[in-house]
Nucleic acid binder design. Structure first.
Length: 576
RNA sequence: CGGGGUGUGGCGCAGUUGGUAGCGCGCGAAGUUUGGGACUUCGAUGCCGCAGGUUCGAGCCCUGUCACUCCGACCA
């Protein structure tokens, strides 16, 4: 490929709406162009990167007996009604009508389509297990796309679905797929990706893992134990609290606390630590605004994912009005009264506590000396708290939890029978009895993975693509291409490398300064750069340099092609 | 869905009390340059987001609206 005909502008100034480096560099480097909120077109360099990523994924999926298939982007609503998700998923699922007024959806995931594809075929236990996958466009009408390709509405995803006749078989396959994912990330140049236990959310099922690239720009928070290696998405991490009771429970005492509303203010006022207080957090059910009051130790926060999972319905932070009976700022467990009733929950962090401060359900008054077992009675304590930095590891018990940010670059779920059952998929076992198959599903966002690699490997001047996914393996800069000798040597080198099957982008623009050439080469990020110039040729050499600056060699022109092939081989080797 | 911000050539931005719409980059031509985004000269590119309103006159003031963006909420 000749650079002077490569479609797409490369430019110097950072676009004002790019907040993360990978986004800015990929816009500046002519990789992609904004079309609409969360929707982009790719130019050739990005297409080449994603094509290579797709090929790596394909090879690894095939290696674990995956069969590549293709599901439709547009599906009839009836298919989604079968699983119940047509109703249960919100506006993230784009719904529309066709010319006959039939309700249609744009595929945001393909469990329904997968079951639909195989449910007649897979009617006997002899046909199991199997896995089908596709690499295709998805559309999710996200509320807030961000970060360039990190979070978009339209994107390419590899999604795989496996079918099994036993939980053990699913678990075996799940493990194989986990291994395959590790190989994919290693081959794509980010072996540092880790898997974390996750919440399975709307997908249903039990066990699931997310693959995370740790980076400060990540959208997810991950709890990691420095001692035992336990790691989980903060949403899914158990919060372990060990409280000790004071020996003597003081009497419940009303205290006048004017203009004190927050837990920090009351603890400051009483000169007690925040973990000796009980705070109220109020939510409302989305469907009917029913109140849910949660009591939790003052220093902790509610994990809304756990709350939603426990309740089984969606909630939002409450809007507290005069009429509802709640005294905002003074809510406490003793004498709580809500007009129309409410659900009251206690977080585990309040177990085995006494002498807490809390609201008195009365304007400008708090209690001290709260002992829930004495003043409220026996209550059920549920884990609803967010795990905290320095908290207790649920696995080993050490106080070594750290919280890091990460980008989710893939996930795997043990789905169970949610889709096979709701969609009436069965097979006959060896005894002739009808059974429901057990499913797993496995996703990787291709564009997000490309952006994540760029985020992990770049400098101020551009991406530094790993050899395996670089748009081209070699970038030739013919500095002073107007010089006949330079032009001749560079042309020869370009032809020679191409004849050997090396992927080359060749910059032979005359009248372009060296600075422009190098800047463009930096933005394209090809791992090996060859510089042909009058200065080098005067010494009888051509320069072979790494984009990541790890090496720079000057070789005789006839030695370059061999050396380049050697380097490519070395740089393709997978780093574990 | 809440709260902030921004909409002016392809990109980044300036535009004063309302009075002929500007700068830098990029783009085209000519020439001089040539190892880290060169220089000179000439040139092309604007529904000033959109719709109303006030005014002799609006990029600027008023009203509405849309889009984008950031922080939350939401989210395989």
């Amino acid at each position: 490929m000749k650079l002077d005909k490569l479609v797409g502008d490369r430019f110097k100034e950072r676009p004002s709406d790019c907040n993360i480096d990978s986004h800015a560099l990929m816009v500046r480097g002519g990789y992609m162009k904004y079309v609409a909120n969360g929707i982009f077109s790719s130019y050739m360099p990005l297409k080449r990167v994603t094509r290579k990523i797709e090929q790596i994924i394909r090879e690894e999926m095939d290696a674990i007996d995956g069969q590549e298939v293709m599901f439709p982007v547009v599906m009839p609503a009836t298919l989604w009604q079968e699983s119940g998700r047509y109703e249960s998923i919100g506006s993230e699922l784009l719904r529309f009508s066709d010319r006959n007024k039939a309700q249609m959806v744009l595929g945001m995931t393909h469990e329904e389509a997968a079951v639909h594809l195989v449910r007649e075929y897979a009617n006997s236990y002899t046909k199991y297990p199997f896995m089908i996958y596709q690499i295709q466009t998805k559309f999710r009408d996200e509320a807030r796309p961000r970060g360039g390709l990190i979070r978009v509405r339209e994107f390419t995803m590899k999604d795989a679905y496996s079918f099994h006749t036993s939980q053990e078989d699913l678990e075996d396959y799940y493990y194989r797929c986990h291994k395959a994912y590790e190989r994919i990330y290693a081959r794509a140049g980010i072996p540092e990706v880790i898997s974390v236990a996750s919440d399975s959310g709307m997908m249903g099922g039990s066990i699931s893992h997310e693959f995370m690239l740790l980076t400060p720009i990540g959208e997810d928070s991950i709890a990691i134990c420095k001692k035992c290696g336990y790691r989980a998405n903060m949403e899914a991490a158990d919060s372990i609290i060990e409280n000790t009771r004071d020996e003597v429970s003081e009497a419940l005492t009303e205290v006048y606390t004017p203009n004190i509303h927050t837990i920090e203010e009351i603890c400051d006022f009483l000169k007690t630590p925040t973990d000796k207080s009980c705070k109220a957090v109020v939510y409302q059910r989305n469907s009917d605004d029913h109140f849910i009051v949660i009591f939790i130790r003052g220093d902790l926060d509610i994990n809304e994912t756990k709350l939603t999972n426990h309740l089984g319905y969606d909630v939002h932070p409450a809007v507290i009005t005069e009429e509802c009976g709640l005294n905002a700022g003074y809510i406490g467990p003793v004498g709580l009264n809500v007009n129309g009733g409410c659900t009251v929950l206690y977080d585990k962090s309040l177990m085995n506590t006494n002498n807490l401060s809390c609201g008195a359900n009365k304007e400008e008054y708090h209690y001290t000396g709260l002992d829930i077992s004495r003043d409220v009675g026996e209550v059920e304590y549920i884990d609803l708290a967010k795990i905290i930095e320095g908290g207790i590891c649920p696995e080993c018990g050490a106080h070594e939890i750290t919280i890091s940010r990460g980008i989710e670059v893939g996930n795997i779920f043990q789905l169970g029978t949610k889709y096979s059952k709701s969609m009436g998929m069965t097979y006959l076992d060896s005894d002739g009895n009808a059974q429901t198959p057990i499913m797993g599903c496995y996703g990787i966002g291709v564009g997000r993975l490309a952006a994540s690699v760029c985020e992990a490997h770049h400098d101020d001047y551009g991406p530094i693509w790993p050899m395996a996914i670089a748009p081209w393996q070699v970038h030739i800069c013919a500095v002073r291409a107007d010089d006949a000798q330079v032009k001749e040597n560079a042309d020869k080198l370009y032809a020679e490398l191409q004849s050997r099957g090396v992927e080359v982008i060749y910059d032979d623009r005359a009248n372009v300064s060296a600075g422009v050439m190098f800047s463009d080469a930096d933005l394209l990020g090809c791992p090996i750069r060859l510089v042909v110039s009058p200065r080098n040729l005067k010494d009888g050499v051509i320069e072979v340099a790494a984009r990541d600056k790890s090496f720079s060699e000057k070789l005789a022109p006839e030695a370059v092609a061999d050396r380049v092939q050697e380097l490519i081989k070395e740089m393709m080797a997978v780093k574990e």
